[in-house]
C-alpha cells in the first residue's frame, strides 16, 4: 500500500485497533430517501459507533448491488438526486461526526464529472477516499493521479476468485484499506458470513496489506465478532439500508449501537 500520504481511513482503523475494537464501517446511499434524511441517517451512524461512513452514489446500472440497495438508490434517483449533491452530504456528515467519510461509486459518475474535478470537490468537502466496485487498478490511471494530488484513499476490492498476482496488484494499488469481498455475489444480508472470507483476508494480509476490511453479507453482531477474529474491519450495508427504509434515521443509530457490540474485543 502507498503509505507516504496521510490516510484518514487508516487513522480511524488504527484508532479502533488501539482501543481494542474491530473497525466498523457502515454504508448508506446518498439521497435516500431524501438528501436531508440521508444526512441524518449518516450522522446517526457516525455518532453511534461507526469509524468510517461509506456513502453510496445512486447509479442507474448498479451491477454489484442486491435488491435492497438497488431499490433504495433507484428511489433516490426518482426523487431527483444529482451527483453534485453528494458533496453537500459529505460536508455535513464530516462536520457533524468524527467518522471518516468515503464514497462508494460506480466509475461512470466520476468519469462524467471528470476525475480531477470530482476528487477536488470531494476533498474540499472533507472526504477521505473512494470505494470503487467496478474500477480495477488497470483502468485507474487518472484516479491514481487525482487521489495522490488531493490525498484521497483508494479502496480497491479483492475477491475470493482473485488470483495471487491480482491480490498483489490490488494491495499495492490501495491506500487506507483493502475491501475484501466475502463471497462471490452481490450486496445483501446473508444468514452466515461466507467461509471464503477468512481466506480472502489472509491472502490480502500476506500480500502486504496492513488493513483489510470485510464486506458483503454482514448483518448481525455475531458476524462482526467473527470477522474481528481475522480482519481489521467489518462493513455493513444492506442491514442499515433496511432499517432506514423501515423505521427512519433514528433506527440506523439503534442498529449501529447493536452491531458495534460485536466490534469490541474486550
Amino acid at each position: 500500500m502507498t503509505e507516504s500520504i496521510r490516510s484518514l481511513t487508516a487513522e480511524k482503523i488504527e484508532q479502533a485497533r488501539a482501543e481494542g475494537r474491530t473497525a466498523f464501517i457502515g454504508y448508506l446511499p446518498a439521497g435516500y430517501p431524501t438528501i436531508d434524511d440521508s444526512i441524518e441517517a449518516a450522522v446517526q451512524l457516525g455518532n453511534n459507533g461507526a469509524d468510517i461512513i461509506e456513502i453510496g452514489l445512486p447509479y442507474s446500472d448498479p451491477v454489484m448491488d442486491g435488491e435492497v440497495i438497488q431499490k433504495a438508490t433507484a428511489e433516490a434517483l426518482q426523487n431527483g438526486f444529482r451527483v453534485a449533491d453528494v458533496f453537500h452530504i459529505v460536508k455535513e456528515v464530516t462536520s457533524r461526526t468524527d467518522a471518516a467519510v468515503v464514497i462508494m461509486t460506480y466509475w461512470n459518475l466520476v468519469d462524467r464529472m471528470g476525475v480531477d474535478e470530482f476528487s477536488r470537490r470531494f476533498a474540499e468537502a472533507g472526504g477521505a477516499g473512494l470505494v470503487t466496485p467496478d474500477l480495477v487498478p488497470e483502468e485507474a490511471g487518472e484516479w491514481f493521479e487525482a487521489s495522490d494530488k488531493y490525498e484521497l484513499d483508494r479502496i480497491f476490492l479483492t475477491a475470493p476468485s482473485s488470483p495471487d498476482e491480482r491480490v498483489k496488484l490490488t494491495v499495492d494499488s490501495s491506500r487506507g484499506f483493502v475491501y475484501a469481498v466475502s463471497v462471490m455475489g452481490i450486496t445483501g444480508a446473508r444468514g452466515e458470513v461466507s467461509n471464503a472470507a477468512e481466506r480472502v483476508v489472509r491472502r490480502a494480509h500476506d500480500a502486504g496489506a496492513p488493513r483489510v476490511c470485510v464486506g458483503l453479507g454482514i448483518s448481525e453482531p455475531h458476524h462482526v465478532v467473527e470477522i474481528g477474529s481475522y480482519a481489521d474491519g467489518a462493513i455493513v450495508g444492506t442491514a442499515l439500508v433496511s432499517a432506514l427504509r423501515d423505521n427512519g434515521p433514528q433506527a440506523v443509530g439503534e442498529i449501529t449501537r447493536n452491531l458495534v457490540t460485536g466490534a469490541s474485543k474486550n
Binding site: 466496485p133 474500477l135 480497491f156 476490492l157 476468485s161 491480482r166
Partner: peptide
C-alpha cells in the same frame, strides 16, 4: 474498450 468490471469477474475474463 478496456475492462471496467468488478474484481470478482476479472479471473473469469482472463
Amino acid at each position: 474498450g478496456g475492462q471496467w468490471m468488478p474484481e470478482s469477474l476479472m479471473a473469469a475474463l482472463q
